[in-house]
Structure formats: C-alpha cells, structure tokens
Write a protein that binds this DNA or RNA. Sequence first.
DNA 1: GTCTATATCAGGATAGAC
DNA 2: GTCTATCCTGATATAGAC
Lengths: 221, 221
Amino acid sequence: MDLLNEFGIPVIPDAVNTTQRKRESIIEAALAEFLREGYAAASVDSIASRAKVSKPTIYKHFGNKERLFLAVIGGVLPKTYADLEPYNSMIAEASDLRTALIRLTLDWTKLLLRDDILSLRSLVIGEIDRFPQLGHLWYRVSYEMNNAPLVNAITELHKRGVLDVPDPVLAVQQLVALTVGVPQLVKTLQPDLEIDDAELTRTITSGVDVFLARYRSASRL
Amino acid sequence: MDLLNEFGIPVIPDAVNTTQRKRESIIEAALAEFLREGYAAASVDSIASRAKVSKPTIYKHFGNKERLFLAVIGGVLPKTYADLEPYNSMIAEASDLRTALIRLTLDWTKLLLRDDILSLRSLVIGEIDRFPQLGHLWYRVSYEMNNAPLVNAITELHKRGVLDVPDPVLAVQQLVALTVGVPQLVKTLQPDLEIDDAELTRTITSGVDVFLARYRSASRL
DNA sequence: GTCTATATCAGGATAGAC
DNA sequence: GTCTATCCTGATATAGAC
C-alpha cells in the first residue's frame, strides 16, 4: 500500500537515503537499548520498535545480534574520544606547564565522567569476556588519541630539561591515574554520586601537583 | 528411593547439614555461573546442574534470580577483601616507610589483579545500573577495609612530622591510583594481557616514589 | 525439603509476500 | 529492501508427589 500525500499523489521515498536512514536509526536505537539493558538482556524486538523498523530489516543489515552489538559499540568508541585531540599538542609549547596540564586533565576528566561515556565504559567492561575485541579497541583508541601524544610532549619537555622523566610512558599512566583515575574510580562504582565542579578541580589540581613534585626538573626549582 | 550403603543399610542423611550443604553448593555454583555468563545470560538450569540440585530447591532457598544474585555477590565481596587487613596497621610503625608502602600496595595490587577478583569486579561494574547496591557495597568494603586504616596511619605520620599531608583522604586515593590503579586499568580492559612480576614491582615502586616526592616531609630530606 | 514434570512466555532468527 | 507472520528454543517460575 503506497502512501499518498495531501493531494493524493503517491509518495515514493528515495530508496538509498531511506535505507541509509533506517540503518542509522537502528544504530541509534541499538546503542540506547544496549546501554540500558546490557548485551544479553537487550532485545532485538525493542530495538526494532525504537527504530520504527521491522526485525528482518535489522537482520538484513547486521546479520545477528552479536554483529549488531560489535558494529554499534565499535562504531561509537572512536567518536567518543575524538573531541580531545587538539589539546595534547599544546602541552609542549605552553608557557605555564602546570596550568596547561590542569586544563588538559580537567577537560579529559569531565569528558570521561559524562553519564553516557560512563555507561558505555561499564557496558564494555561488563561484556569483556564475551567481546574482548571491544576492550582492546577501547584501550587502543584511548591510548593512541590521548596517552601517546602526551608521551611525545613529555619526552620533548624532558629533552629540553623542563621535566626529568626517565620513563615517559609510565609517567603519563601515572598522571592519568592521579587525575582522571581518582574520580573515575568513584563514579564507576557509584554513578549516581554527584561530584561538584569545585571538588573536581581541587582533585585534578592536587593530582597535577603530585605529578610535578616528582617529575619537574630539579634545576628549575 | 532410599540410598543403601555397601552393607545394604539405608543411608539417612542429616537433614540440617544436607540442607546447609545444598545451600552452599548452590552459592558456589551460582557464583561460577554468574562470573562466566553475567547476570542476564546466566541460567538457573545451569546453576542447578552444577550444584547437583533441582531448580525448585534454588527457588525455595532464594526466592528468585535477582535475590540469588544479590545474596551470592554480596556475600562474596567482604570475603574478597578480608585478606588485606593485617598489613595496614603496620605502616605507621614501620622503620622504613618507603619499603612498607611498597610492600603494602604490591600485595594489594596482586590481590586485585587476581583473575577471579577482576571477573567479579567486571561483573559488578557491568550490572551497576540494575544492582547499584553492589557498587555501593564494593566501594564501602574497599574503603573501610583498606583506605580508611591507611588514612589513619598517614594522619598519624603527618602528626609526627614524617609526612606533610594536608588532605589524607585525597592522598590515599592518589596513592591507590598511582599503584593499584595503573595496572588495574590495563587488566580491566585487557584481562588476557599478562603482566610479569618484575614490571609490576617496577610500576608499584615508581608509584610510591611519586607519592613520597610530594608528601614526604621537607624537614626529613 | 526436595524432586519430576510442566506452565507460560519471551527472545532470536527466518520464510515468503510485495 | 522491507514487511507480516511464524518457528522454535530456552528461560523463569511453580504445582503437586514423596
């Protein structure tokens, strides 16, 4: 049965765009459902309803539930981290290193404490035994988009004598643990607990100061 | 049909002990099943098989699947952390603080990186939206059995002038993040990745040194 | 208290029309 | 490519015998 518009003229949707739009609609609905229910409890029926699409359409596009899960979660991961790129490169050039580090790690922390990202992270961690690829992907994306550029910046600062860092890779892990890691650990186990901005800033600032107490070059003190 | 022993004499099991043993058998089997499959995918049928018990027995004991899950996971959590208690009290009295801190955090880390505990942690994190009680319980047990005694010890060391720690609670969080947190973050997303003992020791040692660089009393340098 | 057997239902996946 | 209608497995939970 064709749809007719208000003049009685049949509406023929553009086939390609419709297909593409349905595909995106499925991905959006699936992400929401998986985040809410987890993998096993998520139902393809619910996803079909949310996406206003029939079940066979989902199976034509993605094959089965596992592939749908991998495609959806694997697709959203890189997008999640894409926001942070620009900041890293500025560290090596900053006139005030302490302020630059605080700014960087504070932005990073606020991103990773967002409810949607915490949910995504909990989902990936919870399904790690069934979908280890997602754990590796998360680690790789997180490392390449964040740690690695920071390692480069810190290595550069070491060469210039601003910092004294024998193991830059470990040092960056420690900086991340000292800043992002502290509130993340709390919110991972207690997502409902609110952390106000002042406390977050205090935590991050203190973390950066611990980092600098160890790694700032003695000659600059 | 009664069981007969080798002399043809019927074996009448002690009713109370049998019931208790079945209950423990269910708990053990349920824990294994939940750790393997997660909450939603775990089947009460499988648990009954593993425990060599019929399904109605499980429902008589625990009511439903949710209550079974909460009883099992909530019961195993405190046991998990019970091993660490003795070490904390020794920090304040140690002659060599650095060595004592390394020893404490290294033991702590090795415990929390055990496969069964990592699985338990991933399970709790993955089900956090459906069972927030478990997240709170984990946080509370972990804090009371580990962080709190360490906060006391560090406060004591601050009073004695050995350390200079304006905020002991935050400082302990940072110490934990710097030591346990670094390898835990890796193993949480990549459980299969092996971390050898030498590298672990190096990581923990470096973490303690970062901590002490910031908080060791200046007068003692 | 514990079992066998069963009720009841929802979920993943697909056949076949259009 | 997309839908309606359906298959079939496997899940939670329980009735009733012993």
